[in-house]
Design a protein around this nucleic acid. Structure first.
Length: 559
RNA sequence: GCUCUCGUAGUUUAAUGGAUAAAACAUCGGUUUGCGGUACCGACGCUCCAGGUUCGACUCCUGGCGAGAGCACCA
């Protein structure tokens, strides 16, 4: 539709002998300003030597009858052209939405492309950090947006299963004698080891020694403790991922990538990397970046080298990939610029493919009070637990049979919404009070609206009202003017890597529906337009369901 | 010190260079005996400062003030 208006305007401009100009056709900020608007007259006025409103009036006449879907065009404000679509356009859209069902909102901008996307990247042996949680939520939503665009998406997890945090936990297990298959004991062991490490002294040296032994794999006892701990941590991680509704296609732990990374760096030292003060570095300055160390002066791989090895293994796992996306905290933005530059030099054959880093902002709490009765540090796990408790209390008057499942879905919705309503990359100030209140702009508000529609449609069916778009009232409802934009929102959210476009749209849609709901009675068999209202409600329900899916949020039928 | 990001109602956030800067929370005031009040309607209230570019600037440029992040062997 938008493209159609754009091209017709271009034709008309050419007919009037105006040089092509750069103008836009977009949805105006307010519904009162029509369904589409163009600034063409404002942009072209100067060239033509006319007042914008005069040129707009001239264009208006020339556009007459050229856009069958457009009912009327108006000149407004300083010289905008406002386009109002025909009533039937909206009616037909409702039909389309109901027919397409779960397919509604898809696009084909990434059709037949393979996208590797990596996110979450937890430290095994440590509780899921708040940053891991944010990364997981953003990464999962982007993955789904890619899928909605037709891409074949392969999700990668890159857990850290070796290194200092592992050494601390292993040291701690020896000290506490805790059961390595028990997650609580494992957490306790990590805290013990971490505290000892912080204190320094002989215990710190022991931990460093354990770290080396684990890398070398030289001590059977230590290896066993590590492996048992990994298994326990993974079990716990899987529980969390199930709650968050994420599953990975590939898992490449850190311990696998050191070797290949080191080998690649050594192989390319001289050409890509160079010696400097005993270390092997990549000089980023040559392309406006900074220098980073890939092999330290002991010849051991740093995280940088590991990421080179990591890339190689990913490529081997999915050789036909078109784009590789990595989601991490924003503090790694500069780091990845250097890594990508090095990768392109090490793998010249792959340098044309798309490498992308998506940076997520930091999450902090509004009020300084970390509340939490135990006074412990905020982790991703503790936050998720608090949300679930609040959801369970709140759901006491539920209509569902499965309170636990609902509480979980509502908690995850509240959490994900709070994070995904922000522009990706900007810092997130998490207002716990607000997130737990479930009112106003929130995930549960969207879920509630969805459940309410399902309920109303059931009532309507009982009253003998079946959804139909046969007979529509003369004027479209405001909500119809939002519904048809959904596919555009989904496409744009992916293009801009901005799921917050989806949260914003769904919130506006839900708000518009609730207003509609307050004004119009749907389950009223005496109203000849009731079937159409039911169809509109059904279209909103489908749109909310599909949109929530894109955010990684469940849309329960009952709450 | 250098580089990057950011600064919008009391608070948390929106706004491809466009029309009267938009929501939510908080505050104040309402909601037809209601198809789910986790809802709806209304009021109050905002672009850090100084210049510049533009028909038009929260948005772009310059300078200031303030906050955060990154800058070699940690992960």
């Amino acid at each position: 539709m938008k493209d159609q208006i754009q091209s017709v305007i271009s034709e008309v401009l050419a007919d009037l002998g105006v040089e092509p100009v750069d103008f836009v056709v977009e949805h105006p900020g307010e519904l009162a300003h029509g369904d589409y608007a163009s600034n063409v007259a404002l942009v072209a006025a100067k060239q033509v030597g006319k007042a914008p409103r005069d040129l707009a009036a001239q264009l208006l006449v020339a556009l007459e009858g050229k856009l069958p879907e457009v009912e009327k065009v108006e000149v407004a404000g300083p010289g905008f052209l406002n386009f109002y679509l025909r009533r039937d356009f909206f009616r037909e859209k409702i039909t389309t939405i109901l027919e397409e069902g779960e397919q509604w909102g898809r696009n084909d901008t990434w059709k037949e492309k393979l996208v590797m996307i990596e996110y979450t990247s937890p430290n095994l042996f440590k509780p899921l950090h708040i940053g891991n949680l944010v990364g997981n939520i953003v990464g999962e939503s982007l993955s789904r947006l890619f899928e909605l665009a037709g891409a074949n998406v392969k999700r990668f997890n890159y857990p850290s299963d070796i290194g200092m945090s592992v050494a601390k936990a292993v040291w701690g297990m020896q000290k506490t004698g805790g059961d390595p298959s028990d997650i609580q004991a494992l957490g306790e062991a990590y805290r013990t080891g971490n505290a000892a490490f912080e204190e320094g002294g002989a215990e710190k040296d022991e931990i460093v020694a354990i770290n080396k032994a684990l890398y070398a794999g030289s001590d059977e006892t230590l290896n066993t403790l590590r492996e048992q701990g990994i298994a326990t941590s993974k079990r716990r991680l899987q529980e969390l991922l199930d709650v968050l509704d994420t599953s990975f296609d590939h898992e490449l732990p850190e311990s696998l990538v050191s070797g290949p990374g080191q080998a690649l760096v050594e192989e390319h030292t001289g050409a890509v990397f160079e010696q400097s003060d005993g270390a092997v570095v990549y000089k980023g300055e040559k392309i406006g970046l900074h220098t980073r160390v890939f092999l330290n002066s002991e010849g051991l791989p740093t995280y940088e080298a590991k990421d080179i090895g990591h890339f190689k293994l990913k490529h081997e796992a999915e050789p036909s990939w078109d784009a590789s996306v990595i989601v991490t905290g924003i503090e790694q933005a500069e780091y990845f610029k250097v890594i990508f530059a090095a990768i392109k030099e090490v793998f010249p054959d792959l340098s044309e493919r798309q490498l992308e880093h998506v940076a997520t902002g930091f999450l902090t709490l509004t009020t300084g009070k970390m509340s939490s009765r135990k006074g412990n540090v905020l982790t991703g796990e503790s936050l998720l637990e608090e949300m679930q408790e609040a959801a369970r209390e709140r759901a006491s008057e539920t209509r569902t049979d499965n309170l636990d499942e609902l509480a979980e879905q509502v908690a995850v919705a509240a959490l994900k919404y709070q994070i995904l309503k922000h522009n990706v990359g900007s810092n997130i100030v998490f207002d716990k009070e607000k997130a737990l209140s479930f009112e106003g702009d929130s995930g549960p508000y969207l879920q509630y609206t969805h459940a309410r529609i399902i309920s109303v449609l059931e009532k309507a069916a009982q009253a003998g009202v079946d959804a139909s778009t046969q007979l529509a009232p003369p004027q479209p409802y405001e909500i119809e003017k939002l519904l048809y934009r959904f596919p555009e929102v989904i496409e744009e959210a992916l293009n801009e890597r901005a799921p917050h476009n989806v949260t914003g749209f769904l919130t506006e849609l839900a708000g518009a529906f609730n207003t509609f709901y307050a004004q119009e009675k749907i389950a009223d068999a005496t109203d000849k337009f009731a079937p159409y209202k039911a169809a509109v409600a059904g279209a909103v329900q489908q749109t909310l369901q599909n949109g929530l899916w894109a955010l990684g949020i469940k849309a329960p039928d009952k709450m």
